[in-house]
Amino acid sequence: MVTKMIKQISDLTDGDTAKVLSVNRKDALGIRLLELGFTPGTPVRLIRSASKRGPIEVLIRGCRLMIGLSEAQSIDIQA
């Protein structure tokens, strides 16, 4: 088996959809992301990224959210 590289939401290109694998941080912010709907298996779509290292706009459970890059990097997606 080839080991799969784990990708984060921020690695998607604009307009792409993927499924959430997990939230990779366990602090209060990780819980907040889960509460916002980033639970494993949820489809999430990257609407656009502001710039290379700026925030991203995602569509999750019918809501448009702006997420900072480092928060976006804490959400793993299924490749």
């Binding site: 912010l29 907040r32 992301l33 916002l36 925030p55 706009e57 809501c63 448009r64 959210l65 702006m66 997420i67 900072g68 480092s70 928060e71």
Partner: peptide, 11 residues
């Protein structure tokens, strides 16, 4: 070092 930022994009 770091602070979180999650906001809703209002319509």
């Amino acid at each position: 070092r770091h602070f979180a930022q999650i906001n809703e994009m209002p319509p």
